[in-house]
Design a protein around this nucleic acid. Sequence first.
DNA 1: GTCTATACGTCGATAGAC
DNA 2: GTCTATCGACGTATAGAC
Lengths: 194, 194
Amino acid sequence: MPSARGRNLTFTEEARRAQLVDVTIQLVAEHGYAATSLGRIAESAGITKAGVLYHFPSKQALVSAAHARVVSRVVAEVGAAVEAAGPAEAPAAYIRTMISHLHDHPHHVRMLIEAVTSTQSAVDSAERWRVVADLLATARDARGIAGELDLRSAALILGGGIDSIVAESLRDPAYDASAAAELLVGLVENGLLS
Amino acid sequence: MPSARGRNLTFTEEARRAQLVDVTIQLVAEHGYAATSLGRIAESAGITKAGVLYHFPSKQALVSAAHARVVSRVVAEVGAAVEAAGPAEAPAAYIRTMISHLHDHPHHVRMLIEAVTSTQSAVDSAERWRVVADLLATARDARGIAGELDLRSAALILGGGIDSIVAESLRDPAYDASAAAELLVGLVENGLLS
DNA sequence: GTCTATACGTCGATAGAC
DNA sequence: GTCTATCGACGTATAGAC
C-alpha cells in the first residue's frame, strides 16, 4: 500500500505511522473522537503531541488514516465474499458478510461511526448506496427479473437495515445479529429480488 | 411543559431558556456540535458565555434540552398520525409521517444526529425499536396474522431504513423521499405483515 | 529524519463583583 | 441575572536539539 505522503517512507516512519493508526483506532473506539486528545494518543504511543504531528499534519488527518484502514479491511473481506458468491447470490452474501464482520470487530464499527460523524467525510460516504444498488441490479439481471425497481431507495433501505442491526448487536451483545441477517436476506429475496 | 429545574421559573428566565434552545438548534444544525461553541451561542443570544451557563449548567445540558425539544415535536406529530390511522395501518402511517416530517425539518434531523452521536444519550435511544416493534405486533394482531416474527429485528430494519432514506434526502434535496417511503411501506406490507 | 520544548489561541467551566 | 476575570485542557504551529 503506497504512502499517503509524496515520497517513500523510512522503515521507522512506516512503523510509527502504523503504530499511531493502531493506537488511534483503539482509543477512538473506546472513548470516542472528542474524548481522544492528541495528548492521549501521544502518551499511548510513547511520544509527545508534536511528535505525532510530525507524522500526521493534524488530528483529523490521523483519524482519517485510521478510518481508511478500517474501511479497507471491511471492503476486502466483504468484496471477496461477494465475488465468491455468484451474481445472483451476491446481495445475500453482502448482507451476511457485512453483518458478521462488523459483529466480530466492534472496534471497527465505533471507529467508522466516529469518523463519519466527526468530520465531513461525505465524499466517499456520499454514494455508498451505489455499490449495493449495483449488486441488486446485477442479481436481478442474473435471475431474469424485469420491471423497474427504485434501486437507490432499495439500496438505502438495505444499507440502513444493516447499520441498524450492527448498532444493536453492539449495544446488546446478547442480540442475535445473524438471525436478523437472515430476516433481512429473506426480505430482500422476496421483496426486491422477485 | 414543566421546567427541567426543580423550582418554577420566572418569565424572563423561561424566555431566555427558550431563546437559547432555539439558537442552539439553529447553530448545531448548521455547523455541527463541535463547531458550535458556547461563545457563539452566547453571541447569537446577545449575552456572554457565563450568562448562558447561568441558565444551563453545561453545554451538553443545553444541547440535550434542544434535543428533547426536537424529539417531542417529532413524537407529537408521528404519534397523532399513528393514532389517527387504525392499528392495522399504523406501521404505514409511521413510515410516511416520520419520513415526511423529517424531510420537512432538516434542521431537526441534523440536531438529532449531532445530539445522539456527541453524547451518550443511549438511555432513550437504546430501545427506540420497541415502539416500532409494538406497532408491528399490533398490526399483525389486527390483521389476524399468526406465526412468530422476530419483532426486534423487523423493527430495527424498518427504523434503519427510515434513517437511511431521511439522511439521503438531506444529502441530495432532489431525491424523492416519499417514493422511497412507499417502497418501504410495500416491503413491510408484503414481507412483515403478511 | 525524528523528535522535544515552548508558545498561541480557543474551548468549557468556575468564582465573585455588580 | 449578567458581567469580568481566570482556570486548565485542548489542537495547532514553530524553533531547534540530536
